[in-house]
Write a protein that binds this DNA or RNA. Structure first.
Lengths: 212, 212
DNA sequence: GTCTATAAACCGATAGAC
DNA sequence: GTCTATCGGTTTATAGAC
């Protein structure tokens, strides 16, 4: 149980990542210095290199960790139900989960170009996996007649952009509660893709005529 | 008409701004050096200070110039017609105009925090003016019964986020033409805010009953 | 595991020659 | 208007003491 004095690897490590995440989001990767991060943690700059081989890898690890959490969180959601319900589950999950990780979301969008090509490719794959989850909902809804979408890929990107926007203005103690924001966005997303009632009736009518 | 040899102020000035815009968008303000910009233009680093007092002012001038162009462009559009038509005009303008200025759009979103508080406030005012133009369309449509929006401010931000997203993935020689992208986005925006037919009928019916 | 000290390079901005 | 040279300060990363 005895721990060597001066050994804080399992404490300092997470503190380094947390400080780096916050500083990168606040000031940008390029303009944050290793000395700033070290100062935030309460160690000297040289000590940081016990926890990361270099500055760029520190950024990459933060972004990969974030994307993995997003994918794990999505996998833990309950996606039973029809496409309309699944879309609501997705939009509510996305808003809630991303609002809790605004620093990481911001960095994920802005600092990708500070990565090497290989590191970028890894994150790009993870992002695509996430987008595919939404697109498959749209495709299913299109097939079942719940949705009326011209282009599922484009619509996927449009919806995610819309949902991401919430991270740029939402304030936890602001005018609207999280529940209300989730509801409004979820409603907008639904309306943007759902088949209109009159159009659905028209199609059902045409199908009936075809049968008769 | 004779021009002093070595005098290229009216040529080099724009070249400096163009190079800075491209480099800032590509690599981020903080990681672009004055020497890189100078090299791109074909002069030495010291010569740049004939065209800007310092690096930060160079960024600010680029962003203010961009926002002014956006506001001028918007003012030149024809906003006659009902709210549904005006919303389409706005969305198509936004997509077209922003896709032609992707570097500036990207920087406008990411590099605001590298500005002084005063400079930031100037751009924030201009941005708000632009958002207000969209919100007034939503308010008018809400009043006229064309739209069914829970919160015009939030919806404004959501729509602009959605439209901005196009700049992150659109490729001029991609699968979809600009016209088609404009049409799909405009359609999605319209559906997201428009009053459903059945709901409008219900309201008109209720109004009729109230009269009787 | 953290410190101090330092290497090697680079930065923004300025001064003065032409 | 542009150049060269340079000042004063910063950076990432490493070496070695404790």
């Amino acid at each position: 149980m005895a721990r060597k004095i001066g050994s804080h690897s399992d404490i300092t490590g997470p503190k380094v990542r947390a400080a780096a995440l916050r500083l990168f989001a606040r000031h940008g990767f390029a303009s944050v210095t290793m000395r700033q991060i070290a100062s935030e943690v309460g160690v000297q700059a040289g000590a940081l290199y016990l926890y990361t081989p270099d500055k760029q890898t520190l950024l990459f690890d933060l972004l990969r960790e974030h994307m993995q959490e997003v994918l794990d969180g999505l996998a833990a959601e309950d996606f039973s139900g029809n496409p309309v319900e699944r879309l609501e589950t997705f939009t509510r999950f996305h808003i809630r989960f991303h609002l809790e990780r605004r620093d990481a979301v911001f960095i994920s969008y802005m600092e990708l170009r500070n990565l090497t090509d290989e590191n970028f490719a890894v994150l790009e794959d993870m992002r695509r996996t996430y987008e595919d989850a939404l697109e498959s909902i749209l495709k299913d809804g299109q097939a079942s007649g719940h949705f009326d979408v011209e282009d599922t890929k484009l619509t996927t990107l449009a919806l995610i952009s819309m949902l991401n926007g919430v991270t740029t203005w939402y304030k936890p103690d602001g005018r609207l509660s999280l529940e209300r924001v989730e509801a409004i966005y979820s409603d907008m997303a639904g309306k943007a893709v759902r088949m209109a009632r009159w159009k659905r009736k028209q199609m059902l009518g045409a199908a009936g005529q075809a049968k008769a």
